[in-house]
Nucleic acid binder design. Structure first.
Lengths: 207, 207, 207, 207
DNA sequence: CATGAATGAGGATTCATTCAT
DNA sequence: CATGAATGAATCCTCATTCAT
């Protein structure tokens, strides 16, 4: 018979994670200290280590929850047109890009860059990448099924390109700042390109 | 009257930087230790600290020289057509992307991400970004001057977009690895897009 | 009126001790963790601490039971000749020596060595030593009573010597391993010596 | 050009080792803390770690120096009779046994017992054992060469037996204390036995 | 100019024991 | 009686930088 319920455990985890998120956001992964996470969480060292076996464990739970959240957003059934859904996705990304510097993304990039040769970190990154890949794939399939999209080039390439661009503009927003890189204009251009790639028929129709 | 000439000083700096590059590439910025840099350079602590006031100084000199090198490549006068030059630029980038994980880029991203709120690091990043920005701007101006390019959208936006994409694919190559992200295909798509944006008249001419 | 009978209590103790023995054998006394003992016993921290007030308590109960077991073996009435009984004792020791590294002995030696200045541990060691001393004393007295033994030197000295040798060969078996120290030959030599000390008359008789 | 001479380095090492010896003797290997060694040595953490890479390194240097010292004692050329030399060896051991509890031996036994499954520690123990083995072997060979000794049983077995006994009486002296185990009498008995094994001719002569 | 020994605060993590439930 | 979550001091070790020589 557990002494505290799963709900209570979850509540404790959330307390720890909230403290940890603050610290990781302020300091990054490496420079974040367990002492500070422990202090801000109002717990003791032993208390935190009961829930997570090390700093990396705390960080990965934070990442995992973030991506679960994101996937659920996308996974919602949607009655809109394929293109409208795709545009909503882009708008959502634009919004996220603008506040990229204030969230967990910087720590995450640091974590994956520094740990690029560590097999465990690579696996986590792979999962994250797959999640994004399949999210976009779903959007495109949706548009294709609805007869709206007729991609003129392999879908794989389109998605890889989109991911590269999105990762890049995230990174730019983080290190250069959201101002001065014309985020809005970049997304307008991205939308135009996406339209002409996914719906090349429009052009033919306009002939 | 200095006891050793500027040339000798430069030679020492190069020795230090060569050692430092190795260490930064292997360990990243934060995890690189001055002890190892000192050891590999064959110098003493005091010796290294005579030329650079701290680890950051070593790293920044390394970055600076790398970007000076890159800018000079691009700044060479060139007799080719504007589009050919632009394509060469893209090909050069593609090549760099493929070996991004083995160079200084990972350390650099780590450095700028972690230090995104540090004004000194921001300034350095700004310079690096400007260098790339003006390189591309030069390429486009060249094409425009030669009557080949007729950008359909503001040049600023084009460049910001290119930079985002390039930063993104660099990052992907670093953390996910150069295989499995279809670098070649992404660059083909990028070339197509660049052509249709920079030389939209071609389409009309082809009508 | 106790809620659980003494038998039930004993059963719980045995469960705890079985788990504890495993852990102490694997890790030694200091490195053994209560967490692991608790885990393997299938009990809770509170449960274990109800029966033993600390790690030392668990360990000492384990030792105590082991020596009670040993003493009982020896204390059995025996109809054999004094010398045969003595030889059986040596053979039993030889067998134990060969598997010394896999039992509780290493932890025990660790415990008594590290705690050599602790009066409580000294007292326990004294008891253990007395138990062995009187076991051997019994064997010799038996032989003397039966008219077989006629020790040429003080019995005390004989026993101290025997104990030293046995402790030493145990220790050697533990730290150097049972192979390569010629355990069998050592015991043959010990037997020869014992015979010539305990039964010096034989020689004279053989004249 | 080293900043400090090898002699100065050695002096620092000796300072550290003196402090470490005290701490190891008082607390044992595991319980000794680097903090205390650092404190007593009058050095800083970094200072100590410049000379030894970890606690084990300090301890092993201490052991090594002790055994080098012992071997040198024995290695001295000696003009005495073989038996006199052997007796001196036994007397030397007796003296050491009496003060075993106050030296490094307890920590050493702890270290080798706890680490009996660690290949590095085993190797060190093997070396220590070999050193003792060959010391005794030298003594016996000396006596044989001088025509005094004529061992009635294999020399290997004699030495293994001697080592077992010596290890055992050391251990007894440590955990039970030098009083009450009749060290003097044990050594008298050992000497008698050794004589009758190494010089069995005496008996025949006495016939 | 050059050396490299020395500093010491700070890092993550462990674990026997307690006590509110 | 029994639970097991929580405590927090203590562990070893690292490393950028300084400064006496």
């Amino acid at each position: 018979m557990p002494k505290i319920s799963e709900q209570q455990k979850e509540a404790v985890r959330v307390e720890i994670l909230n403290a940890a998120r603050e610290v990781f956001i302020e300091k990054g992964f490496e420079a974040a200290s367990m002492k500070e996470i422990v202090g801000r969480s109002g717990k003791s060292f032993g208390g935190v280590y009961m829930y997570y076996s090390n700093k990396e464990g705390v960080f990965l739970d934070l990442l995992r929850r973030q991506y679960v959240g994101m996937s659920q957003d996308v996974a919602l059934p949607n009655p809109k047109s394929g293109w409208d859904t795709f545009r909503l996705f882009l708008q959502d990304q634009e919004r996220r890009v603008k506040e990229a510097g204030n969230g967990l993304s910087p720590s995450m990039y640091e974590y994956f860059i520094v740990g690029r040769r560590d097999s465990i970190r690579r696996k986590w990154n792979e999962e994250r990448r797959q999640a994004v890949f399949y999210s976009i794939l779903g959007l495109i399939h949706d548009g294709v099924k609805k007869g709206e999209f007729n991609p003129s080039i392999p879908v794989d390439t389109i998605i890889h390109f989109l991911i590269s661009f999105l990762e890049g503009i995230f990174l730019e927003s983080i290190i250069t700042g959201p101002e001065g890189i014309g985020i809005g204009n970049q997304f307008v251009l991205l939308e135009d390109m996406s339209r002409s790639i996914l719906m090349p028929l429009n052009k033919e129709e306009s002939k």
